[in-house]
């Protein structure tokens, strides 16, 4: 039997495939239902926050910042309550990261404010002396992509039954309705910001990447 396998490349390949696939089937599949259940109080992201999440991904913030607080005292003291599986139920993709060159951001919304983020993105050393993080000035120039964010929200609502448009949950509605909600949420953030560039652009109806990103970071609690 063994020798036969060695001489029949096709069945050999099938054998290898079964051996390597088995682990995945056992470890991954059975937990899908259970770990997908959200913790009470966890809400899907609003469209503006999603747009900010896209900025976070576009600039690979997750290359240096984790979003996963491990259950140790040293971590809960530093970052707050340790992470629960259900808190990530609406994270597509997950953004746990694999390296903490900078601090964890899982609950950054609890202890940083809009203007802190604004200074920090313009010039990290101005708020954190010694920081090695680069400045992200281009976020003050580029516009956030609200349409794609809305498209994503609508997609997860339709395909994965993410509870948008339900009681106590973010409302999506049509694109125009959603755009209005986005402008409202953005207005509050822009009001807290100093940058005249961002403020003037907002008057023209443009939402800069930085606004969306701050909305996202503030939502991390």
């Amino acid at each position: 039997m063994f020798h036969w396998l060695e001489k029949n490349p096709f069945f050999f390949a099938v054998g290898v495939f079964l051996v390597i696939a088995y682990a995945g089937i056992v470890t991954i599949l059975p937990d899908f239902m259970e770990s997908a259940r959200p913790v009470t109080g966890t809400k899907p992201y609003t469209v503006l926050e999603l747009a900010g999440r896209h900025v976070y991904i576009k600039d690979s913030c997750n290359a240096c910042h984790s979003q996963l607080i491990r259950p140790f005292k040293s971590e809960t003291d530093r970052y707050g309550m340790y992470s629960l599986s259900g808190e990530y139920a609406y994270d597509r993709p997950f953004l746990w990261g694999s390296k903490r060159t900078g601090p964890d951001l899982m609950r950054v919304g609890n202890y940083r404010t809009t203007d802190w983020h604004e200074y920090h993105m313009l010039d990290p050393i101005s708020v954190v002396p010694g920081s090695i993080m680069p400045a992200y000035k281009h976020m003050f120039k580029n516009n956030a992509d609200i349409e794609t964010a809305y498209a994503e929200a609508l997609t997860v609502k339709k395909v994965f039954n993410v509870p948008y448009d339900q009681a106590d949950m973010p409302q999506l509605g049509t694109y125009d309705e959603s755009k209005k909600a986005v402008m409202e949420q953005a207005a509050a953030i822009v009001a807290d910001m100093k940058s005249t560039e961002v403020k003037e652009a907002f008057k023209r109806g443009e939402i800069k990447e930085i606004v969306a990103l701050i909305a996202y970071l503030n939502s991390l609690k």
């Binding site: 051996v19 088995y22 056992v26 059975p30 239902m33 259970e34």
Partner: peptide
């Protein structure tokens, strides 16, 4: 039920490991 799945999973895992060993 989740528990049945868990049980099946455990058996599947044990038997496969023994079988492959």
């Amino acid at each position: 039920e989740m528990e049945t799945i868990r049980e099946l999973q455990a058996y599947g895992y044990i038997f496969a490991t023994i079988f492959l060993s």
